[in-house]
Design a protein around this nucleic acid. Sequence first.
RNA 1: GGGGGUGUAGCUCAGUUGGUUAGAGCGAUCGCCUGUCACGCGAUAGGUCGAGGGUUCGAGUCCCUUCACUCCCGCCA
Length: 594
Amino acid sequence: MNKYRTHTCGELSIKDKNKKISLSGWINKKRDHGNLLFLDLRDNYGITQCVIDNTHQNFKELEKLPLESVIKIEGKVIERTKETLNKELNTGEIEISIISYEILGNTKELPMPVFSDQEYSEEIRLKYRFLDLRRKKIHQNIILRSKVISFIRSEMEKNGFLEFQTPILTSSSPEGARDFLVPSRLNPGKFYALPQAPQQFKQLIMVSGFDKYFQIAPCFRDEDARADRSPGEFYQLDLEMSFVEQEDVFEIVEKLMTNVFKKFSNKKMLYDKFPKISYSDAMIKYGTDKPDLRNPIIINQFTEVFKREDVSFDIFKKLVNKGSIVRGIVAKNTKDKPRSFFDGIDQWAKDQGASGLAYFTIEKDTELKGKGPVGKFFGQDSIKEIMKISNAEVGDSIFLACGKKGEVENILSMARDKIANDLNLINYDTFAFCWIVDYPMFEVDEKTKKITFSHNPFSMPQGNINKIDFSKPLEIKAYQYDIVCNGIELSSGAIRNHIPELMYKLFSIAGYNKKLVDEKFSGMINALSYGAPPHGGIAPGIDRIIMLLAGEKNIREVTMFPMNQNAQDLMMEAPSQITEEQLKELNLTFKKNK
RNA sequence: GGGGGUGUAGCUCAGUUGGUUAGAGCGAUCGCCUGUCACGCGAUAGGUCGAGGGUUCGAGUCCCUUCACUCCCGCCA
């Protein structure tokens, strides 16, 4: 028999009545009646109430034990009387009459309570993460994470994928995010990089003939954190398949996502079949390539309206003459909203750094007219035109943004969320997945005005390879795709370019000559020259999937040992200083700051 | 790198227009209490009001600087 326990704290029931048992766990809570003490013992599996009274020789000692002490209890399972049942606990029909106890682990005074639904500062939670993780909600989140990953593994294996590990110490690559670098002791002056993703390796696995690969892969990117972005490291379900087209990848991943979300959440899936939206459509209709499709609002194009004679809104007209565009969204049935609602949204837009949102409400007495600050600038026919474009009706309001394409897309994509939220249009009990497809191969860097890869340099351009017009690189689309759920980008992937000549050509457009490509992507380009299969894949973000399933807004709530915003581990005190000796071994010296 | 928010007891927070000795709940310590499950009751201890400087007769409160945590932009798929 196990020395510490015969049962866990979550499993005893009325069936075990009168059994002599032992439990081990933490003292979750005590209720001390002076001559009668209730003690809730907690472990990973649940809570069991234990009871002792002053006729017992150990009563005084147990009364004094601080919460979160680890103890072993030996006792007898007693059926609770009808009045004293606790329906909230699985073990609420019974309690343990304590016969003896043993202290297994003492505790100092707690820096934060474990038994409490209060929220604590991140600083204290991260420093004492082992205490924080004992708390119910986050404990359950981490268990959920384990179960989801385990389920994904078995689904992938069922689908014939093989799991492989890829190197953690690899080479730095010029594309993408900033690398974490590791100095090489044996190669002075040279550095490894931690992989931003196993991108090249998974393609090499395909070239090596393994056909279907997956991995729950750690990815390292030295970029600043966000609520949904860990600083430093995160996990992807990295997968790659040979001899496939885009649709084959979609089929596998769509099925997987559906199975995962149906199994681990009660929320409804808005679509059985994920809609496919082209990148350019997404930018026009939603102003972003990660639209929240739970939100019914769609952006409309109104630029032409501002060229009409019966529109006298001069500020916008002048801007349109100079090449600005006008787009807008409809807020349904808002004619009775107070002025503060509209001004609030305009002010909100200004707070976001936009020049504001013009708005008016469509009214009708004898004829159509616009009510609100800019309403008077629109003649009846122009309002009809606006209603035709946007399907707006009398009683609806129009919010308009004017400016450069990027600015307008940006503010309206945010306004879509803001207004839908204010008007309560979003059903939070649903998951709305979609595919964003047909990404452009290249884009122009706003700052440098140079042409760069818009996504992943290894993607396959669309169309007949022999007929691609390389003189118009911005028109080349790629077999590149993202999965978006509820406005969160879950993953991106692509059919890869497995043809070296084409790769050189595309890289040359982005300013890499052949020599540079050979140098920076030697592993890849070399491998593609020895019989590479057509292949493609994708890499859904594990952390974000868990966030959606757990309904958490912050990635730290689904990460066991996260770092803070400054990429520090407050518990382990990483990063830390190293010794002169270590530096010397690595052939490194510090540059003194002034 | 830039912008916003927060910082008061071990924890969560209140603290009015600048005005006497900075409060509450939880936790801790001590006492009372035999059916609680956020048990109840009483008492005690516990404070560099993040730090530094300034204005003022007087600063938790106003100003400046700075630090920490956090959210956002940049960055990042």
